[in-house]
Design a protein around this nucleic acid. Structure first.
Lengths: 151, 151
DNA sequence: CGCTCTTATATGCAAAAGCATATAAATGCT
DNA sequence: AGCATTTATATGCTTTTGCATATAAGAGCG
């Protein structure tokens, strides 16, 4: 039995989602906080901040970032050089590298995060009602999970 | 009277939206159709295809794309060199340049588009119900409009 | 009208991204 | 155990991106 969802339904939704993302992102990126670190770099620090102690593999991190693996590897070089991230070999698997935030990295992530979060709220807060934000969160999470489950 | 929407509501929604976009985009980009043109380039052709005859200014186009103005200018160079876009000076305003698709540009856009749309449907179609897609479309459009209205 | 100010796009140059491939460790098979 | 295969990350090299600024045309104002 085919899905009752039409090609048009999905395409419209994807275009609307994508274009909202572009619109919002363009504004957020302009914030002075992102003179210190690009949004992508900030995003990497946030992801590292979320999966606490022990660190995370480069490949895993890569799934959450829109960057090729080599580019991410080099971004990690730079963030390491700045002292925000540390690489350490995984004792379980000598091929792998475990990444984690340094204290300094955590500090700057939080600093930028504070301003960023305020900016997001200012920018999109007036756009939807509370229940609508909740529904948007629910739908986009459901979508992510569905896509991720289908490898 | 402050907005009843909390910082948490907006931040969660933005993170979920952003991360869905990353997840979906990573998959879509892998499609062989995007060996011919990057997704950004394709997106530019789509935008040009939508605002029909007479052309569109580079600056206007730039609002729909996550690229700096100089980078877009150079992407247009490349697409022009490939014969997909034509630049022509605006007679009303000699500073401006009007961009439009060539026939060849329209052709390739449609060719890639056909496959792309099919891929989108396969990828996200099973993730939500029809009404949920409709609601997602509505919410993300509403959000875009709200953000755009606030210059 | 002449001059400053703004707006639209382009260019020089350095930084970052991607592609192909290298390296190096784990895994699997015989 | 030995060798091919797969997996995880890094590196060489080219292309694309961004930042700062140049160019060039419209606008506003004395």
């Amino acid at each position: 039995m085919p899905s009752p969802v039409s090609v048009r339904d999905t395409t419209q939704a994807w275009e609307a989602l994508f274009s909202a993302q572009v619109t919002i992102m363009r504004r957020l990126q302009r914030h002075p906080a992102f003179k210190r670190l690009t949004m992508r770099e900030y995003d990497v620090l946030v992801t590292l901040g979320k999966c606490p102690n022990g660190g995370i593999r480069l490949g895993t991190l890569n799934e959450n970032v829109l960057l090729s693996q080599p580019s991410l590897s080099r971004m990690v070089d730079r963030l390491e050089a700045k002292g925000y991230i540390s690489r350490c070999g995984d004792p379980q698997d000598q091929r792998a590298v475990l990444l984690s935030l340094t204290d300094e990295g955590r500090r700057i992530q939080r600093e930028i995060g504070r301003e960023h979060v305020r900016h997001i709220h200012e920018l999109i807060g007036p756009g939807l009602e509370v229940e609508e934000f909740a529904e948007l969160t629910r739908l986009t999470r459901k979508l992510s999970e569905s896509v991720q489950s289908r490898n």
